[in-house]
Simulated assay, not measured.
Amino acid sequence: MSSGTVADMVDDLRQRIDSGALEPDEKLPSTRVLMETYGLSDNAVYRAIALLKAEGYAYSRQGKGVFVRSRRALITGARRIRGITHPGERIEWRYSTRTEAPAWVAEHLGAGECVERARTVRRGDEIKEASRSWVHLDVVGVVPELDEARPCNPTWQAVYTERSGNPVKAVSVIADARIATDDDREALGLPAGTHPVLFTRTVYATGDRVIGVGESVPAPGNPVDLTEH
Protein backbone atom coordinates (compact mmCIF):
# COMPACT_ATOMS: atom_id res chain seq x y z
CA MET A 1 0.00 0.00 0.00
CA SER A 2 1.87 3.08 -1.26
CA SER A 3 -0.22 5.71 0.50
CA GLY A 4 -3.24 5.68 2.72
CA THR A 5 -4.97 7.07 5.76
CA VAL A 6 -5.10 6.34 9.46
CA ALA A 7 -8.51 4.71 8.86
CA ASP A 8 -7.00 2.42 6.20
CA MET A 9 -4.33 1.20 8.62
CA VAL A 10 -6.76 0.71 11.48
CA ASP A 11 -9.30 -1.13 9.31
CA ASP A 12 -6.65 -3.42 7.83
CA LEU A 13 -5.04 -4.34 11.15
CA ARG A 14 -8.43 -4.77 12.80
CA GLN A 15 -9.49 -7.20 10.06
CA ARG A 16 -6.22 -9.14 10.35
CA ILE A 17 -6.67 -9.46 14.12
CA ASP A 18 -10.32 -10.49 13.84
CA SER A 19 -9.47 -13.11 11.21
CA GLY A 20 -6.64 -14.58 13.26
CA ALA A 21 -3.94 -13.59 10.75
CA LEU A 22 -2.41 -11.68 13.66
CA GLU A 23 -2.64 -13.80 16.80
CA PRO A 24 -2.99 -12.75 20.47
CA ASP A 25 0.28 -11.47 21.94
CA GLU A 26 1.92 -11.30 18.51
CA LYS A 27 4.09 -8.20 18.11
CA LEU A 28 2.95 -5.65 15.55
CA PRO A 29 5.48 -4.46 12.94
CA SER A 30 7.72 -1.55 13.92
CA THR A 31 6.67 2.05 13.34
CA ARG A 32 9.06 2.26 10.41
CA VAL A 33 7.58 -0.83 8.74
CA LEU A 34 4.02 0.41 9.32
CA MET A 35 4.95 3.80 7.81
CA GLU A 36 6.28 2.08 4.69
CA THR A 37 3.38 -0.40 4.48
CA TYR A 38 0.58 2.15 4.78
CA GLY A 39 2.30 5.23 3.36
CA LEU A 40 1.86 7.21 6.56
CA SER A 41 3.93 9.59 8.64
CA ASP A 42 5.16 8.52 12.05
CA ASN A 43 2.54 10.72 13.73
CA ALA A 44 -0.22 9.12 11.67
CA VAL A 45 1.01 5.63 12.63
CA TYR A 46 1.01 6.67 16.31
CA ARG A 47 -2.60 7.88 15.97
CA ALA A 48 -3.64 4.59 14.36
CA ILE A 49 -1.98 2.56 17.09
CA ALA A 50 -3.69 4.72 19.73
CA LEU A 51 -7.07 3.95 18.10
CA LEU A 52 -6.35 0.21 18.08
CA LYS A 53 -5.42 0.39 21.77
CA ALA A 54 -8.58 2.35 22.59
CA GLU A 55 -10.69 -0.29 20.83
CA GLY A 56 -8.96 -3.09 22.73
CA TYR A 57 -7.10 -4.53 19.75
CA ALA A 58 -3.57 -3.78 20.92
CA TYR A 59 -1.48 -3.04 23.99
CA SER A 60 2.07 -1.84 24.71
CA ARG A 61 4.88 -3.47 26.60
CA GLN A 62 7.31 -0.85 27.81
CA GLY A 63 10.50 -1.02 25.82
CA LYS A 64 9.29 -4.02 23.78
CA GLY A 65 6.70 -2.64 21.36
CA VAL A 66 3.00 -3.01 20.59
CA PHE A 67 1.24 -6.39 20.69
CA VAL A 68 -2.10 -7.87 19.71
CA ARG A 69 -4.50 -8.06 22.63
CA SER A 70 -6.45 -11.27 23.20
CA ARG A 71 -10.11 -10.81 22.30
CA ARG A 72 -11.18 -14.16 23.77
CA ALA A 73 -11.91 -13.35 27.41
CA LEU A 74 -15.29 -11.77 26.95
CA ILE A 75 -17.15 -10.65 23.85
CA THR A 76 -20.19 -8.63 24.79
CA GLY A 77 -23.01 -6.82 23.04
CA ALA A 78 -23.70 -7.41 19.36
CA ARG A 79 -20.30 -9.08 18.83
CA ARG A 80 -21.10 -11.78 21.39
CA ILE A 81 -24.51 -12.40 19.86
CA ARG A 82 -22.96 -12.90 16.40
CA GLY A 83 -20.62 -15.57 17.71
CA ILE A 84 -18.45 -16.46 20.70
CA THR A 85 -15.47 -18.14 19.07
CA HIS A 86 -12.39 -16.88 17.28
CA PRO A 87 -10.44 -18.52 14.46
CA GLY A 88 -8.84 -21.72 15.66
CA GLU A 89 -11.37 -22.20 18.46
CA ARG A 90 -14.23 -24.66 18.67
CA ILE A 91 -17.28 -25.22 20.84
CA GLU A 92 -17.73 -28.52 22.65
CA TRP A 93 -21.26 -29.09 23.90
CA ARG A 94 -21.67 -30.68 27.33
CA TYR A 95 -25.42 -30.95 27.73
CA SER A 96 -28.82 -29.41 27.01
CA THR A 97 -31.70 -30.10 29.39
CA ARG A 98 -34.98 -28.77 30.73
CA THR A 99 -34.57 -27.62 34.32
CA GLU A 100 -36.07 -25.43 37.01
CA ALA A 101 -34.52 -21.98 36.84
CA PRO A 102 -31.94 -21.41 39.62
CA ALA A 103 -32.76 -18.54 41.97
CA TRP A 104 -30.59 -15.92 40.23
CA VAL A 105 -31.90 -16.99 36.82
CA ALA A 106 -35.52 -16.87 38.03
CA GLU A 107 -34.98 -13.25 39.05
CA HIS A 108 -34.64 -12.48 35.33
CA LEU A 109 -36.69 -15.15 33.53
CA GLY A 110 -39.29 -15.85 36.18
CA ALA A 111 -39.73 -19.04 38.17
CA GLY A 112 -40.36 -22.32 36.41
CA GLU A 113 -38.84 -24.49 33.72
CA CYS A 114 -36.28 -23.24 31.23
CA VAL A 115 -33.65 -24.75 28.93
CA GLU A 116 -30.15 -25.02 30.39
CA ARG A 117 -27.25 -25.49 27.98
CA ALA A 118 -23.58 -25.99 28.82
CA ARG A 119 -20.48 -25.87 26.65
CA THR A 120 -16.75 -25.24 26.62
CA VAL A 121 -14.61 -23.31 24.16
CA ARG A 122 -11.27 -24.85 23.21
CA ARG A 123 -8.23 -23.82 21.25
CA GLY A 124 -6.45 -27.03 20.40
CA ASP A 125 -6.31 -29.07 23.59
CA GLU A 126 -6.60 -26.00 25.84
CA ILE A 127 -9.93 -25.13 27.45
CA LYS A 128 -10.39 -21.37 27.20
CA GLU A 129 -13.83 -20.96 28.76
CA ALA A 130 -16.80 -22.82 30.21
CA SER A 131 -20.25 -21.34 29.91
CA ARG A 132 -23.87 -22.09 30.58
CA SER A 133 -27.04 -20.40 29.40
CA TRP A 134 -30.63 -20.51 30.58
CA VAL A 135 -33.28 -19.66 28.00
CA HIS A 136 -37.02 -19.04 28.38
CA LEU A 137 -39.20 -21.83 26.97
CA ASP A 138 -40.98 -19.35 24.69
CA VAL A 139 -37.76 -19.09 22.72
CA VAL A 140 -37.78 -22.85 22.04
CA GLY A 141 -40.87 -22.39 19.86
CA VAL A 142 -38.74 -20.25 17.55
CA VAL A 143 -35.40 -22.03 18.06
CA PRO A 144 -36.18 -25.73 18.67
CA GLU A 145 -32.45 -26.48 18.39
CA LEU A 146 -32.17 -25.31 21.99
CA ASP A 147 -33.44 -28.71 23.11
CA GLU A 148 -30.70 -30.46 21.15
CA ALA A 149 -27.09 -31.10 22.24
CA ARG A 150 -25.59 -29.16 19.35
CA PRO A 151 -24.77 -25.52 18.66
CA CYS A 152 -27.18 -23.01 17.21
CA ASN A 153 -25.38 -21.47 14.27
CA PRO A 154 -24.05 -18.92 15.03
CA THR A 155 -25.85 -18.47 18.41
CA TRP A 156 -29.39 -18.92 19.68
CA GLN A 157 -29.69 -15.13 19.99
CA ALA A 158 -28.83 -14.58 16.32
CA VAL A 159 -31.10 -17.42 15.17
CA TYR A 160 -34.00 -16.06 17.24
CA THR A 161 -33.45 -12.57 15.82
CA GLU A 162 -33.42 -13.84 12.23
CA ARG A 163 -36.49 -16.05 12.56
CA SER A 164 -38.68 -13.84 14.75
CA GLY A 165 -37.62 -10.43 13.50
CA ASN A 166 -37.16 -9.34 17.12
CA PRO A 167 -33.56 -8.27 17.81
CA VAL A 168 -31.89 -9.73 20.92
CA LYS A 169 -29.54 -7.47 22.85
CA ALA A 170 -27.10 -8.05 25.69
CA VAL A 171 -28.57 -5.50 28.09
CA SER A 172 -26.22 -6.00 31.05
CA VAL A 173 -22.99 -7.73 31.96
CA ILE A 174 -21.58 -8.13 35.46
CA ALA A 175 -18.33 -9.69 36.62
CA ASP A 176 -17.53 -11.25 39.99
CA ALA A 177 -15.37 -13.96 41.55
CA ARG A 178 -16.06 -17.16 43.47
CA ILE A 179 -14.53 -20.44 44.48
CA ALA A 180 -14.90 -22.90 41.61
CA THR A 181 -17.98 -25.10 41.89
CA ASP A 182 -17.97 -28.81 41.07
CA ASP A 183 -19.39 -27.95 37.64
CA ASP A 184 -16.67 -25.33 37.06
CA ARG A 185 -13.95 -27.83 37.93
CA GLU A 186 -15.41 -30.52 35.71
CA ALA A 187 -15.91 -28.20 32.73
CA LEU A 188 -12.49 -26.55 32.99
CA GLY A 189 -10.60 -29.73 33.84
CA LEU A 190 -9.34 -28.35 37.15
CA PRO A 191 -7.82 -30.72 39.70
CA ALA A 192 -9.40 -31.32 43.10
CA GLY A 193 -8.89 -28.46 45.54
CA THR A 194 -9.86 -24.84 45.98
CA HIS A 195 -9.67 -22.69 42.85
CA PRO A 196 -10.74 -19.04 42.74
CA VAL A 197 -12.31 -18.18 39.38
CA LEU A 198 -13.77 -15.10 37.74
CA PHE A 199 -17.17 -15.27 36.10
CA THR A 200 -19.46 -13.01 34.13
CA ARG A 201 -23.22 -13.00 33.82
CA THR A 202 -25.00 -11.57 30.81
CA VAL A 203 -28.71 -10.77 30.48
CA TYR A 204 -30.32 -11.00 27.02
CA ALA A 205 -33.56 -9.24 26.14
CA THR A 206 -35.79 -8.54 23.18
CA GLY A 207 -37.70 -5.31 23.52
CA ASP A 208 -38.39 -4.91 27.23
CA ARG A 209 -38.52 -8.65 27.96
CA VAL A 210 -35.65 -10.80 29.22
CA ILE A 211 -35.53 -14.12 27.37
CA GLY A 212 -32.18 -15.56 28.44
CA VAL A 213 -29.18 -15.27 30.72
CA GLY A 214 -25.69 -16.63 30.44
CA GLU A 215 -22.74 -17.31 32.72
CA SER A 216 -19.15 -17.63 31.49
CA VAL A 217 -16.11 -18.78 33.47
CA PRO A 218 -12.75 -18.24 31.73
CA ALA A 219 -10.11 -20.80 32.56
CA PRO A 220 -7.58 -19.54 35.13
CA GLY A 221 -5.00 -17.36 33.43
CA ASN A 222 -7.44 -15.99 30.85
CA PRO A 223 -8.37 -12.34 31.47
CA VAL A 224 -11.88 -10.94 31.69
CA ASP A 225 -12.38 -7.93 29.40
CA LEU A 226 -15.60 -5.99 29.98
CA THR A 227 -15.02 -3.72 27.01
CA GLU A 228 -18.03 -3.76 24.69
CA HIS A 229 -17.12 -4.28 21.06
Rank of each mutant, 00 (worst) to 15 (best):
P102T: 00
S96R: 13
T120L: 06
A111F: 01
E55A: 13
V173N: 07
E89D: 11
S70M: 06
R150L: 10
G214H: 11
V143Q: 08
V197S: 05
V10L: 04
V159H: 06
E100D: 05
H229F: 10
D18W: 01
E107Y: 07
W93H: 10
W134R: 10
D182P: 04
V159T: 12
Q62N: 07
S2V: 15
R209P: 01
S172E: 14
I174W: 09
D182V: 08
L22R: 06
W104N: 05
P196H: 04
D11G: 11
T155K: 12
S2W: 12
L51I: 10
R32M: 09
R123I: 02
V159N: 08
R82P: 01
V139D: 03
R163M: 02
G4P: 12
D8N: 13
G112V: 06
C152E: 12
V171W: 04
I91S: 05
R117V: 09
K64D: 07
G56F: 01
E228L: 13
A192R: 12
W104F: 08
V143A: 05
L28I: 03
N43F: 07
A111L: 01
G207A: 14
S96K: 07
G88Y: 03
N43M: 12
A7N: 13
H136W: 10
L146P: 08
A192Y: 11
D176C: 03
G39C: 03
P167E: 09
Y95R: 09
P191G: 10
T37F: 04
S164T: 12
G88N: 07
L52H: 07
A21M: 13
R72N: 08
A106L: 00
S172W: 04
E107G: 15
R123A: 13
Y160P: 14
Q62H: 10
H229Q: 10
L226V: 13
Y46I: 09
R47M: 10
P154R: 05
I81E: 13
G141C: 08
V213P: 08
S30H: 05
W93I: 15
L146R: 11
R80E: 15
S131G: 11
T181K: 05
S3F: 06
K169W: 07
A21D: 15
K53C: 09
I81V: 15
G63K: 15
E129G: 00
D125A: 12
R16H: 08
H195K: 11
V143G: 10
L198K: 10
R163W: 01
L22C: 02
M9H: 12
R209L: 14
E215F: 02
A149P: 15
D183I: 00
L146T: 11
L74R: 04
P191C: 03
G20W: 00
Q62G: 05
D42Y: 01
Y160H: 15
V173F: 12
P87R: 03
T206N: 03
R71E: 12
D11T: 13
S96D: 08
V10C: 04
K53M: 12
G189M: 03
V142D: 13
A78W: 14
R90K: 14
A175D: 06
E89F: 11
T227G: 14
R122W: 01
Q62W: 11
R71N: 13
D176P: 00
E162T: 02
K128Y: 06
E107K: 13
R117C: 11
A149L: 14
H136N: 14
S2C: 06
E113C: 01
L74N: 04
D208Q: 15
F67R: 00
N153F: 09
G124L: 09
R16P: 15
Y57C: 05
